[in-house]
Computed example of a mutant assay.
Amino acid sequence: MKKALYFMPDISGFTDFVNNTEVEHSIHIISELLEILLDNNTVDLKLVEVEGDALFMYVTDIPSYEKLTQQINVMHEAFHKHTQNYDTMRICNCGSCRTTTNLELKFLVHYGDLNFIKVKDIIKPYGSEVIKIHRLLKNKISSNEYMLFTIAVYELYKSEIDDGWNKNTEIYDLKSLDYFYKNLEIINAKIEVENTESEEQIEKPILTLEKTINANIQDLYTYISELKYRHLWDKEVKRIEYDANKINRIGTEHNCVLNFGNMKFETITEPSSDHLTYGEKTKEMLFTDAFTYLIKLHKIDQDTTKIVLDIYITFSTVGTFMKNTITKKVTKMWKQKLKQLEALSKNKIQL
């Protein structure tokens, strides 16, 4: 009978969230991380299915111990590099986004017979060997990041395995399952985080608008930063094209479809300890070389927020002759946007 190495990377660390935004963002974050794991498949593992926060995979061309452990280390490092880089690029402060760096990864590996079940056009590995590796997902190992080998895997590689492994036994369905596990090294300190600081030197704004709105600061920030709500307060665009499966963050691009033409914007922000900031920039606005806006939200109380909008414009050569006209038009346009944002906040659309 054909043999297979069963392989399961499993993500853990998210607490239970009740806020809809946090639940939605946790789904997007886990999806990205699972894609990262799949993109770092070095031993030709075949994906059976996505099981919540885990991947169930197998391979029949059994890799060497060195290649198997290298596969685990490559996935582990790519996983933590992504979570750390995400933390430097995030603009959202919800529970899911804020705790992404707390996510952890463990690997379960089993070796055994490969049987399949076919239901209509779906063919999947099936049988006691599949059950064994899934049972071990609920083990009692105190560590949160480790690689677990069943006794069958240990026997397969025992001539190459070092002394750093611990043996344990679990009881499932009145049967004992022996396995070995080894803690994964903490690699976070070794990871170089991508530099997300803008090289642009933004001087003083050409225009500043202020408005105080009776709205919770977090709700208001969600309306502003979540692109799916943009059409509710920005009436200058017909629609906004963006990847709905990704969370808006520094460097995210979206396309505004206007009545005449398109305009691409890139998400930016600035660090602050006393207010929330969201901004965008583009080089596609007519008569300008660069257009940037930053919306700063200051909490007055639980249901009151002060908005400070800063507009930065670098005019093109032709644009310098139309500076006053362009500035007046931009002022009128943004006053209307803020008015619509206030109306949206009063309606309190469920987030």
Results as ranks from 00 to 15, higher is better:
S26I: 04
G95N: 15
V330D: 00
W165F: 12
G279D: 06
E66W: 06
V330A: 03
C92S: 11
T69G: 05
V130K: 00
N20W: 05
H275S: 09
H28N: 14
I326Q: 02
V130Q: 05
I36G: 05
E270I: 03
E51W: 09
T325M: 09
I250N: 02
M75T: 07
N248V: 15
N144G: 11
K182Q: 01
H80Y: 15
K158R: 06
S31H: 12
S198P: 02
V18I: 13
Y111K: 01
G164Q: 15
L55E: 02
T100V: 12
K246E: 10
N248W: 05
H275V: 07
S64E: 04
Y221H: 10
L174Y: 14
L55T: 02
K281E: 10
S198W: 02
E226Y: 11
M263Y: 06
A54R: 03
S345M: 11
L148F: 05
H231A: 07
N93L: 14
E22W: 06
N20L: 13
D219G: 04
L5M: 08
M147E: 10
E226N: 13
E160I: 09
D162E: 06
R249A: 14
D219Y: 08
K323Y: 11
K348V: 07
E270T: 09
L220W: 03
G279H: 07
T83L: 05
K132D: 06
T100I: 12
K46D: 03
N102E: 14
D289R: 15
A343R: 06
E185F: 12
E197Q: 08
D44G: 13
V257C: 08
L114Y: 08
I206S: 06
D243Y: 06
K46A: 10
K175C: 08
R90P: 08
S142C: 11
L105N: 01
K2M: 12
T304Q: 06
W165I: 00
R98F: 14
K46E: 09
F321N: 07
L33H: 01
D53Q: 00
E199V: 09
M75H: 05
K264W: 12
K124E: 11
I202L: 12
E160F: 15
F180S: 01
D219N: 09
Y58V: 02
L68I: 09
R135G: 07
F180N: 01
Q201K: 12
D53E: 07
A189S: 15
E22Y: 10
I247T: 12
T100F: 03
P271E: 04
V74F: 07
S176E: 13
S142D: 14
R249H: 13
E266V: 11
F107Q: 00
D61F: 04
H231R: 03
S26E: 04
F17I: 08
G95W: 03
E170P: 07
T304C: 07
K228D: 03
C92L: 09
V153N: 03
D301Q: 09
Q71E: 10
T267F: 02
P205I: 07
L220Y: 05
